[in-house]
């Protein structure tokens, strides 16, 4: 836990809708609390999707600026959860950012830095990440969204279903097809030894 940072604010039992009402009235403290509550998950999703911490910070910031401006129009009718809406905004922005950036060939990553503890592992993970993202780029937009929520945001199938606005069974079927397509794309890129998709 940070020392004296804004994330130290007691989260309490105040719901997202109550915080959004506060934000609609210009309450910066409510804004801080909402961002402290959801910011980390959004940063993880954006960083894993774009492959860049800087891009992730920028995209999450933009998403929360959008929260500030849309708060007066937010209607808590129970049908749409705030977190579902936020996941959708950050996911779309991250995939869009990813699409605009060309996928670099593996050679462009260069050699792993020597002498750093864990440097080789980091470099290998980075290389794998590039392979995964490049393979995902071959899939349909819907399959990319489903896989990003499943792998990058680590959402459960019911949670992903809400973000994708699909039924649970449709989401599970989409995920199955997406994983199968991802495996095929990885194999085309030279990744072997992947077991059956379950």
């Amino acid at each position: 836990m940070s020392q004296g940072g804004v994330t130290d604010a007691a989260d309490g039992d105040i719901g997202d809708d109550d915080l959004l009402r506060g934000i609609a009235g210009g309450d910066r403290r409510a804004f801080q609390r909402l961002m402290a509550r959801h910011g980390k998950a959004m940063m993880v999703l954006a960083e894993r999707t774009t492959g860049s911490a800087d891009d992730a910070d920028e995209l999450v910031q933009e998403a929360f600026l959008k929260v500030w401006t849309m708060a007066p129009r937010w209607t808590p009718d129970g049908a749409a959860q705030f977190s579902t809406w936020l996941y959708r905004v950050v996911l779309n922005a991250s995939l869009d950012r990813r699409r605009r950036r060309p996928v670099l060939p593996l050679e462009a990553a260069g050699d792993p830095a020597d002498g750093r503890p864990g440097g080789l592992d980091l470099a290998m993970a980075g290389q794998r990440h590039r392979v995964v993202v490049a393979a995902m780029a071959e899939l349909s937009a819907r399959q990319r969204e489903a896989l990003s929520l499943h792998y990058f945001a680590e959402l459960s199938a019911p949670e992903a279903a809400r973000v994708l606005d699909l039924s649970l069974s449709a989401t599970e079927a989409l995920l199955f097809r997406a994983k199968r397509a991802l495996k095929a794309a990885l194999v085309r890129r030279g990744v072997t030894g992947l077991g059956d998709v379950t």
Binding site: S2, G5, V6, T7, M35, A36, G39, M43, D57
Partner: peptide, 8 residues
Amino acid sequence: PRRLDALI
């Protein structure tokens, strides 16, 4: 946490 604080 420090990164999140900075972002906020």
